[in-house]
Design a binder for these strands. Sequence first.
RNA 1: GGGCAAUUAGCUCAGUUGGUUAGAGCGCUUCCUUGACAUGGAAGAGGUCACAGGUUCGACUCCUGUAUUGCCCACCA
Length: 946
Amino acid sequence: MPAIDIPPRYNSKEIESKWYELWEKSGYFKPVVDETKKPFVIVIPPPNVTGILHMGHALNNTIQDILIRWKRMQGVPVLWVPGVDHAGIATQNVVEKKLAKEGKTRQQIGREKFIESVWKWKEEYGSTIVRQLRRLGSSCDWTRERFTMDEKLSRAVRESFVSLYEKDLIYRGNYIINWCPRCHTALSDEEAVHKEIQGFFYYIKYPIDPKTPVHGQDHILIATTRPETMLGDTAVAVNPNDERFKTFAGKRVILPLMNRSIPIIQDEFVDPEFGTGLVKVTPAHDPNDFAMGNRHQLEFVNILNPDGTINENGGNYRGLDRFEARKRVIEDLEKAGLFVEKKPHIHAVGHCYRCHTMVEPYLSKQWFVRMKPLAEPAIKAAQDGRIQFIPERWTKVYLNWLENIRDWCISRQIWWGHQIPVWYCHECEKRGKVPDNLSSPNASVGDIQTCPPQIVGGSASGGDSRFRGNDSRAASINAGIIVSRQDPTQCPTCGDKNLIRDPDVLDTWFSSWLWPFSTLGWPEKTKDLQYFYPTSTLVTAPEIIFFWVARMIMAGFQFMEKEPFDTVLIHGTVRVEGGQKMSKSLGNSIDPLEIIEEMSADALRFSLMMLGATDVYLSRQKFEQGRNFTNKIWNAFRFCVNNLADFKPEDFRPLEKMYAKEFSVIDKWILTELQDAAEEIDTHLEECRLSEAANSVYHFFWHSFCDWYLELAKPVLMGNQTAERKVVQNILVHVLETSMKLLHPFMPFITEEVWQRLKELIGGEYFANETVMLARWPFADQRIRFEKEANAVRLFQEAVGGVRDLRSRLGLKPAEELNEVTIVVKNHEAEEALRTFQKEICFLNRIKHLSLFQTFEKKSGMVGKVYSHIEIFVSGLSESDLKREGEKIREKIAELEKHIQSINDRLGSEQFISRAPEEIVEKEKERKEDFEKQLESYRENLTLFG
RNA sequence: GGGCAAUUAGCUCAGUUGGUUAGAGCGCUUCCUUGACAUGGAAGAGGUCACAGGUUCGACUCCUGUAUUGCCCACCA
């Protein structure tokens, strides 16, 4: 054989980079398109361009890579589309921070320069995560890598916006949205995460307006959690059915500090049981109050600047931060004798999902997507199973969200992102033709969220009153508004060329919801789009079902008229031991790249898969399992190669072409185990149970192949029997090769290394492929499966274990021989089975003489182990060992008696006999017989132990 | 406040449509540096399947309730 020098240690670093480069260079990651076959396609959940690989990515991408590699080996055309998300707010924050270090702000350098510097930043740091995904072994088709801000994907964004507008599914209007005072932008409902905080209920007196006196009352008492918002109060509300406040209806109060007279209105919304039963109404800063404001035609007074400070509508508090203002308002009320008390109160408050700042409900002019029509097909698809969630329970979560869906605020007041493709004509504006609330001319009137309010004071778009106006759906609705696929040069209404583009950009998710088809070329009808859409499986974490998964499904139906994938595989969240979520900000993260450095990418991947399908609880130690396994694989391989020194390529014969009689029982057993493993792994992968699949292959390789087969192969390999030896060598090659294929999706690097070295050794048609990546996925081959042998081997393993236990009780050193062992077998099958293993039993236990009998004259003091079908006799056991064994037999007897009793009860029951299926009754009878035989044999043996 | 899920060995979890004596990995105990591997090998210990009812010939598995925990959603000021 060719001299192959196998290093004693597996050097992951060299090997991993060597193979990855070769794979990529050779184009193995690119799909082999075959029009006759349905492809398997995954689009990557695009990581943020600011991202660095964390354990969540590692888990997510390992799963995707396993599925992709498995399908690829099955000969399915596969495509894994990689890419990166521009992550609007997150990226803008990062670059702004960098500018701040240089003493600059984005406002100083201006929009154009700022965007330039973001692109520059992207060029410099943006490919980090993409490099790291390669380190992990991800077999993405990098030639199809996409970025959500690419020219083509931007076109897709623009197309989708315009077409939705044309279908009246996009509108603009003044509504209460979530405003982040730190990021200076609107957020969608999903981007405002509710957190419970410990706050206070402040009780405040509002004096009755002397002009509308109420008998016997000079004030009312209201309760609020946000006292500073009172500066924008335009009413106080009571429930019309609340007897206590009947006399207040139609009266007015003086708003303290502002000295404004405001009405007391009646509204069903008010809950008489809650607070004082009287509610201050701040239509510009609370969604409920906003609705009340509309119902009662109240004034909408905005008191906040975009940065969270009080604006000119807040009187003396102008310029103060919202929390400072809260303090001052309370102080001043106290001075005025109008503050009563504060009580602790826990309530949920929205926080910005990017910077964790408390958000403000804020009235401003924003763009929205009308979601109800989009949700309908997405709901149906999940209900009738065209889209399946794994685990299934996520379907409910998904449906529940879609069924209660609210319109999606998509405009963001930041600079990094896709700028909204809307222009306003200056001339038309001046003539007051541009309304506040815009939607397409063919809009059906009345289905907009609520009526448009009258604004007083500044709004989000910079305090402009330019668009103040009333409804919308007048005939001239679209005068001066250009929503266009191409940049317009003049106003189609008046021809004026002074056009102003809407300064806002779109929500980041407005580009990612197009991902499954925009990456394939949409809106162009590309070949890729036709062949690869819809994709197959989406692999992601539960956190983004609403942000991304649900919206992709809606977009898929809207723009492609087809669901974007049929399976959504939701994996767990990565946590540290103890249950905390693993995150950089908590400082508890384990860097996957460190694990790759220290232990190898294969170890990282395999460890993650072995941890199970739920949330994974990690510690550094947990990765040792994967590392140990790579070590095991490497050493088993070394052992095999060392014993193949005299094996010539022409000695190799594919096993299915060998005769069954050439194999020993052990050979047949390991081959059967291998077929079982192949079948199990395949079934598990088919059902997306990756950790089960990993377990199967782990168990087969380690415990069946290494622990038993290789141990038993040793005497054969050391012996002189050439024919036997050749058979075993063939099996070694076959099992190794097959195992490497089965393991490859999980551990791509080490399996490639081992496989390539075997190929070098054997060559020939068996290793016709250039890489294990493209080798044929193993199937359970019935020709080399031998069911009968499995039971025999189990008995044999029991016998070996029993003798080993006795050896240790006799205190024998490993090298010492055991003189005389007698095994009594209880039936013919057992005898037959053990007789074939006589040599092996002796070898594994260093037994000089082994006798097998069906009956045996027992001598006292010569008993060791008693099992259900065999007894093992040795001499020289100590009193206490015998006693111990006797105890165990008594326990066993008690257990058997219990089982027999319960079976007797069952068999004695009329109902069981008449109602249980016959086969079950038969089975029970068999079990009973079996138990009784065992019981008899144990009882018989008990006499030997005194 | 609403919804979803979980509760099986010291820990993390399997248990595939209700029917063998409930499994795995890690950890633990004892022994072993035997020539692939101490990142290893062998032999062990360890569970009344959260609790209470119910359905059934039969329940870890199905139903109801209770308890505990976790997650998600939510415009009662």
